[in-house]
Design a protein around this nucleic acid. Sequence first.
DNA 1: GTTAGCACTCAAACAATAAGAGTGCTAACA
DNA 2: TGTTAGCACTCTTATTGTTTGAGTGCTAAC
Lengths: 344, 344
Amino acid sequence: MENSILTPRKQKLLAMIVEKYITTGEPVGSKTLCEALDMAVSSATIRNEMAELSEMGYLEQPHTSAGRIPSQKGYRYYVDNLMGVYELNEEERRGIASWLEPTSADPDKVLERAGGILAQLTNCAVVSTSPSDTQAVIRRAELVPIGTHTAMIVMLTSAGTLKSRVCRVDCELTLEVIESFYNIASKHFIGRSANDISTAMIQTLAAALGEKALLMTPLLVALSELAEASSRLDIRLDGQSNLLNYREFYENAFELMEFLHHSNSLAQLVTRGRGDTDIKIGTENLFRELENSSTIMSRYFIGGHDSGSLGIIGPTRMDYAKIVPSIKYLSQLVGSMLSDTLDS
Amino acid sequence: MENSILTPRKQKLLAMIVEKYITTGEPVGSKTLCEALDMAVSSATIRNEMAELSEMGYLEQPHTSAGRIPSQKGYRYYVDNLMGVYELNEEERRGIASWLEPTSADPDKVLERAGGILAQLTNCAVVSTSPSDTQAVIRRAELVPIGTHTAMIVMLTSAGTLKSRVCRVDCELTLEVIESFYNIASKHFIGRSANDISTAMIQTLAAALGEKALLMTPLLVALSELAEASSRLDIRLDGQSNLLNYREFYENAFELMEFLHHSNSLAQLVTRGRGDTDIKIGTENLFRELENSSTIMSRYFIGGHDSGSLGIIGPTRMDYAKIVPSIKYLSQLVGSMLSDTLDS
DNA sequence: GTTAGCACTCAAACAATAAGAGTGCTAACA
DNA sequence: TGTTAGCACTCTTATTGTTTGAGTGCTAAC
C-alpha cells in the first residue's frame, strides 16, 4: 500500500516492536530494541525513529515513561507489509493433518474437530460455519407421526442440511392429512430454494386451502420455519474460554462472551470477509465489542465452490504471522476433506 | 435434620446472616445484625452466639476483623431447615408463563426459551436436557443418497430425537447397496433400544456379511455412531457468561468455563440428582471446578414420566429461596408444555 | 545523520500511618 | 445463668509520601 512512506529502518523497527510486543505483552522501549538489534545504532537514534513513528500514528504510548506499543494502524501496516509469510514446516502440517484425518466424513464432525484444533493452536476463539450453498434447494420434506396429534417435520436440502421440528396439530393426524401434507410439500416446497419460502407465501397457501387450512396451518408454519432455519448459517463456536486468558479482556469478559453467543453478530462477522483470508484489526471489525480484538477469517472451498468460513477471534496482540498460515492450511484441509465426501 | 442442635435464636441468626450475605456479598458483623434485628438483644450477645456458630462450623471468618460469612455447612443448614419456601406470586408466574408460551411446540425450542428465561431470572448458567426416554427404541433408519458415493444416514427414535450423519462409501451407491442397507437396518436396528447397539454387534454383523462387508461397513459404523449419539443426553447450556459477573469466579473463570463446555462432566452433573429438586452446595458437587459453586437441578415430567433436567449453576452465594421456586415452576411448566405435544 | 548525556516524567513498589470495622474477653448486672 | 457494657486487640483498607527505575525528549557535540 503506502509503504513508501516508511524508510526501511522504520519498517524494521516497527516489525520488531510488533513482534516483541506480541510475545511479551509489555510495552517495548528503545533500550530493549537496541540490544535485540544487530544494526549498530544507539538507543537515542531509535528513540528518534520511534518518536516519528508515534507521530505518524503507528505507535502509541500507554504513558510517558512507558515503552511503545503498536497502534491499530501499526498492526495494520505490519500485517500488510512487514509480516513474514511464515510457512508451516512439514512436521507442523503433518501434526495438524494427523489430528484432523481420523474424523468421520461428516461435515459437522470435521468442523468440530477442526475448531478444536484451531482453538488449541491459536489460543483464540474459533468460529466456523457448516458448508452452505446458495444454490441449495429443498430436497425432501417429510412428516413423521409421533403421536395421534403430533408430528415431526423433517426437511433436507440438497446441501445436506437436515432440520427438524416437532409440531402439534389440533385434529387427528389421519392418513388424509398426511397425504395432503405431501401434496403441498411436493408441489410448493420440494425443488425450491429455502430462501424463496416466505411467510407471505405460506399465508396465500393457507388461504387457498380453504377449510382444510386449520388443520394444515401448524404444519405449514413448521415447514416455513424449517426453510428459514435451513437457509440460515449454522455457526459453530469453539474455544471461547481461551479468551479469558488474556489480560486485555478481563474488564469486558462478560460483554465479549455475550457477543460471542449472539449468533446474529457472528453471522455478520463470518460472512463479511472478502478475499481468501481476511484480517480485521480492532475497530475494523465494526462491532463495538470487538474493538480490542482482531479477527482472521478464511473461507474453505468444496469442489471449487466457496462454501464456508473458518476463523478466529482473539486479542489484537496476537501472533498473526503464525496464526494466518495455520488457518489457511486448516481451512484448505477442511475444504479438501469435505470435497472428498460431498463433491461427487 | 439435626436442627434440634441449634436454638431458635441461633437459627434466626444464621438465617439472617445467610440472607444478608446473599444480598450484599459482604461479611456481616454483629452490629449490622443487631440493628437489623427486632429482638431486643445487644451486639455482644450476638457476638457470643456468632462465636458459637463459628465453632460449630456454620460460619467462617475471612479474617479476624471481618464479619462472618456462612460456611458450606451453614448454607446447607439454611437450605434444609431455615429457608422460607417463597411462593411465586401470581404476577411472577404469569410473567414467566407469558414468556414461555408463545414458543413453538418443538421441545428444543421450548428448552431454548426456558433456558433463556431462567438465565435471566437467576443470573446463573442454565443447564438443561432434551426429553430422554430410556425405553426409546430406534424407529426409523434411512439412507438418503447425496452423491454417487455419499449418503446421509438418518436415525429417528421413538423419543423424537433425530440424528444424522453424512458418510462416504468406497463403491457406488447402487440400488442394491441401498436395499441391503434397509434390510440390515430393519432387521437389526429398528425396534431396538439405542443402548443395545454395540461395536461388538456391528463387528459380528459385518463379519456375517462376507464380501459385501466392505461396502457396508461405513454405513454400519455410521448407524452405530448414530445410535450412540441418540442414547446420549442432549445437553443445552445457556447464560454461561452470567457467571463472569461474580467476583468469586474472577480467578478461575477460565477453568469454570472450560468445565461447562465439557459435556461429559455436565452429563454427570445433570443425571445425578435424585429427588424432585436437588440442591448441591460447594464441594457436594464433587467436581473440583465447582467447589465454589452451587447447583440446583430439577427434573421435568412428561405425561408423568421423569424425562429431563432443568437446572442452574451459580455461586454458593445465591438466592436459594427465590431461585428454587422459579426453577420448580419453570420445569413444571416445561413439563406440561412438552406433555401437551409429546404425550398422546 | 548519529550519538552521548542529561533532565524530566511517570508508574510501580514500598513503607508508614491513620481510620475503622469487628472481634473476644472480662466484669458487672438482673 | 444469661445478658450486657466496655475495652483492648487484631487486621484490613485507604491514604500519603518516598524511592526506584524505566523510558522519554531534547540538546549539543561528533
